[in-house]
Amino acid sequence: MSVPRYWRKQLNRYNLKGSKCETCGRHFFPPRGLCPECRRDGKIVDCEFSGNGTVRTFSIIRTASSDYDIQTPYPLAIIELDEGTCMTAQVICEPEEIHIGMKVKRVFRRIIAEGNGGVIVYGTKFVPA
C-alpha cells in the first residue's frame, strides 16, 4: 500500500471513525457520504464506534502473503460492532478459541510493516472481551 493511501485511512483505522445517518440511524464503517436507504433525505454525520462487538463469522488464515506469514495461523473475522455495522479484522486469540457469537473489544496493534525500512501501519484489531 502506498504511504498516502495508508495515511488517508489512518483516522478510521486508529479510532474506528465512521459515519451514521441521522435520519434512519444506520452506521457505516468505513464511512459513507450518502445513506443507501435514505438517499437525499439522509443526513450523514461523523461518528466514532465504541470498539465493542461480536464475531459473526470467521476464517483461520493458514497461508498468508509474506508480510503476514509470521502470524499464521490467525483468525480473521467479520465483527458486528455494537452500533450495528460489520467490519473485517484480525482477532488476536488461538484459532481454537474463536467462535461465532464471541464478544470482542478493540485493541491498537501493528497491522503490517513494509520490510525493515518501510512504513509501519498501525490500526485496530480485536481481542476477546
Binding site: 488476536i92 491498537f108 509501519i120
Partner: peptide, 16 residues
C-alpha cells in the same frame, strides 16, 4: 510482546 506489539501499541493502550 506479541508479534504485532511494540512501544507505540503499548503506549496507546496505556494512554487509553
Amino acid at each position: 510482546p506479541d508479534l504485532d506489539e511494540d512501544t507505540i501499541t503499548m503506549s496507546v493502550e496505556a494512554a487509553r
